[in-house]
Design a protein around this nucleic acid. Structure first.
Lengths: 225, 225, 225, 225
DNA sequence: GATGAATGAGGTTTCATTCAT
DNA sequence: AATGAATGAAACCTCATTCAT
C-alpha cells in the first residue's frame, strides 16, 4: 500500500512537476525548437543545472512531459469506457470526457496532436512511434465498445469496430480544433450528441431507406444551413 | 492569358522548382529543424547564396513550399467538387481525389498535417494561421455540397453542413494515417464508400428507427468484428 | 617525537587517505579533467561537501595526492641511496627500488610522468614547477653517489655527476615505459645491471680503447640482435 | 609531380597552418583543457565557425596539430639516420638534429612529451596510442644503427640494439628538459658527444677493465664537480 | 549573377563550488 | 559536522545569413 514518501521525495516530485508545467506552457506556446532550456529554467524559477538533475537532456524532459500527460489522459478516457451504462452511454461518456479533458488541457492538446499526428517537426521518431503505438493500442478499447454494441444489437455494423473507433476519435479532434480556432462557427464540441449524431443517424436520404424517405428520425435534430 | 515568359524567366522558375523539390524531400524525411540550408543547397545542386536569391530566408522557402503544394492540392479537390454528378457523386469524387493525391504526395502530407493540425513544432504562427484560414475557407466548398444535398433532398440534415464537411475531411485524414501507419488494419482508404458509409448509414439500431429496426439498409455493407 | 593524535584526528587522517586513494585510482584511469568531484565523492563514499572540508578545491586535492605520493617515493629512494655498500651497490639499489616502487604504483607513475615531464595537459604551472623543483633537487642525491664514486675511484669521470644522475634516471623511466607498453620487447626493467650496463661499459669499440679492442670486458654481457 | 595548387587551395592551406600555429602556441602554454576554441579563434583571427570548417572538433584540431608536427620531426630524424658516415657519425647526427629541432620547436616538444610519455591528462587513448606506436616504430630505425654498428664491429654489444635506441633517445630528452628547466646546470644539450659519451665510454673503473684501470680513454673528456 | 567561405549569436550541457539543512 | 541539491559560468558546436570575389 500507498507509498509513503519522505518530505524530501515529495519536494523533489513537486519540483519536477513545476518544471514540467513551465515547460508545457512554453512548448505549447512556441514549440519545442523555439524554447531554450534557459527559458524553461527561468519560467520554472530554477537554475539550468537543476533541470539537468531531473532530466538527462532537453529531449528527455520533453518526452517525460508528453508521456505523463498521456498517462493521465488515457486513464480518464479508460474510466469513461469502463463506466456504467450501455454502449451508447459509454460513447457519450467518452466524447464528454475527452472534450472536457482537452478543454482543461489545451496546451497539451496542441503538443499531442503535433506528436501523434504530425510528423515533420518532431523530435525523434522514437517518441512519435511510441505515441502512435499507444494511440492505436488505446483505440482498441474504444473499438471494443463498438464491437459490444454490435453483439448486443444496439449498434449496426456499418463499419469495422476499429475503424469506427478511429473515425469517431478523429471527429472529436476535428470538432475540438474547430471550436478552438473558431468557436463561433462550431460552438458545441461539448455536446456529445452533436458529434455522435453524425454516426448515429444516416446522412443518406435514399428512396431505398426503408420507409423513412429522408424524414427526421426520432431523437434526431435538424440543422439548418 | 498566356503569360509568355522569357527563357530567363522560365529558367528561374525551373530552378525554383528544383530547390523546392529538394527541400520538400529533405523536410519530409527529417523535419524542418533538422535540415540545414547547406543540405538543401547540396541536394538541389545550387550554392547556398543562390537559395537566398529565390527565398529571403529559410522560413520563406518553407512557406513557399507548403503554400504551393496547397495550391495544387486545393485545385484538384475543387475540381472534384465542381465536377459532374449529384452531391453524392461529388462526395465520392472528393474522397477519391483526396486519397489519391495524398498517396501520391505522402511526404507533403506529413508536413501538412504537422502544420495544419499540430502546433508545437511549427515554424511560426503566421504560416500555421495562414494554413488554418485556407483550410477552413476550403471547407466551405465541401460544406456547400452538403448544403446542396440538403436542398435537393438527397441528404438529410443530421448536422450543419460545415460541421459535416470538417468531420468528413477529418475522417479521411484519419483513414489515411491509419492506412499509412498500419495498412493491415485499415486496407481501404481508397474505397470512398468505406469512409462515406460512416455518414451515409446510421449507426443506431434504435427501435424507433422507422420500420428498419437495425436491419441492413440497401446499399449498406455489413462488417464483422 | 610521538605525535599522539586524538581519535578524532586519526579518523580525519584516515578519511583523507580514503579520499586520496579513490581520487588516485580515478585520475590514473581517466585523467584529471575527465573525473568530477562527484565521482570522487561517490567512489570514496563521502558527500561532495565533505571533500571540500579536506581540500579547498579540486586542484588542491590533486596536488595533495601527487605530493604525498612523491613523499613516499622519495623516502624509499633516499633509503636506497643511503644504504650500505659502495657506490655501485647504491646505484644497483636505486634502480631496484625505483623499478619495484613504480611497478607497485603504476597508476601514480603515469600521473607523475605527465606532471613532471609533459606539459600540455597539466593543471597548473605551480604544481608542475613544484614537482620539477623537487625532482631536480632529488637528483642531487643521486648525483652525490656518482661524485663519491669519482672520489673513491670506483667510477670514471665520463660526465658530470648531475648529468649522470639525470641520465640514469631517465633511462630507468624509459625502461619502465618500454616494459609497460611492450613487455615482450623489454622484459627486464627489474634487472638493474641490464640498465646500469649501459653506463658501466663503454659502447665504443675504438682501436684506441686501451688494449680492449672491442672485446667483451669482464662482467659484461653480450646481446645479440 | 608537384601538385600545382590553385590559389584557393593555397589560401586554405595557409589558413589551416595559421590556426594550427595559434593553437600550438596556446596549447603549449596552458594545456589542452584550458584553451577554448574561442581563444584559438581569437589568436588565429578567425571566427569560431571557421575553425570548424577546418577541423571537425577541438580534438581533431589537436590531433592534426600533433600528428603533423610528428611527421616533420620524424622526417628530419630519419634523414639524419640515413645520411652519410659510419654508425658513430649517424648517432652524432641524430643527437644533433633532434636537439636542434627540439630547440626550434620548443612549444611542440612539451606537447609531445605529454602525449607520448605522460598519460593522465590526455585527450584520448587513441592519440596516445597512435603516438606511442609511432614512437616505438621509429625507434627501430635508431636500433638499426646500433645493430649495424655491432655488425661492423664499431660498437660493442653492451645491450640489445632496441634498448640502446630507447635509452639514448630518453637521455637526449632528459638532457633537453634539463637544459630547458635549468640551463645553468646543463649547458650543453647541443653537444652530441656530451650525451653520447655516456654510452661510448664505460663508467666502471673496474680493476678488471683490461689494462685501463679507470684511466681516461682517448677521446674521452673528464668532468669535475 | 552565382558562389561558398566566413561569421558569430545562440543552443545544449557539464561540473566545480556553495550553503541551507 | 556532514550532506547533496542547487547554482550558473563557461565550454563546445551548429547553422542561418552575408558579402567579397
Amino acid at each position: 500500500m500507498p507509498e509513503k514518501l519522505s518530505r524530501r521525495e515529495r519536494d523533489r516530485l513537486r519540483q519536477r512537476q513545476e518544471i514540467l508545467a513551465a515547460a508545457l506552457e512554453l512548448f505549447a506556446q512556441r514549440g519545442y525548437h523555439r524554447i531554450s532550456m534557459q527559458e524553461i529554467a527561468e519560467k520554472a524559477e530554477f537554475a539550468i543545472g537543476t533541470l539537468y538533475k531531473f532530466f538527462r537532456n532537453k529531449e528527455e524532459l520533453y518526452k517525460a512531459l508528453v508521456l505523463e500527460q498521456c498517462d493521465h489522459f488515457e486513464a480518464e478516457l479508460l474510466q469513461a469506457l469502463t463506466g456504467a451504462g450501455d454502449e451508447i452511454a459509454k460513447l457519450r461518456a467518452y466524447v464528454q470526457v475527452k472534450v472536457a479533458w482537452c478543454q482543461r488541457n489545451l496546451p497539451f492538446v496542441r503538443l499531442f496532436l503535433a506528436e501523434s499526428r504530425g510528423a515533420s517537426f518532431n523530435l525523434k521518431a522514437s517518441l512519435e512511434d511510441d505515441l502512435r503505438q499507444r494511440y492505436y493500442a488505446f483505440m482498441e478499447n474504444l473499438a471494443q465498445v463498438f464491437a459490444q454494441g454490435f453483439s448486443s444489437g444496439r449498434l449496426r455494423r456499418i463499419a469495422p469496430p476499429y475503424f469506427l473507433a478511429v473515425a469517431l476519435d478523429s471527429v472529436i479532434d476535428a470538432s475540438l480544433l474547430l471550436w478552438l480556432d473558431a468557436p463561433e462557427r462550431h460552438p458545441y464540441p461539448d455536446d456529445p450528441d452533436a458529434i455522435l449524431g453524425l454516426f448515429f443517424h444516416g446522412l443518406l436520404a435514399s428512396q431505398d431507406r426503408a420507409g423513412a424517405g429522408g424524414q427526421q428520425l426520432p431523437g434526431e435534430r435538424v440543422y439548418e444551413k
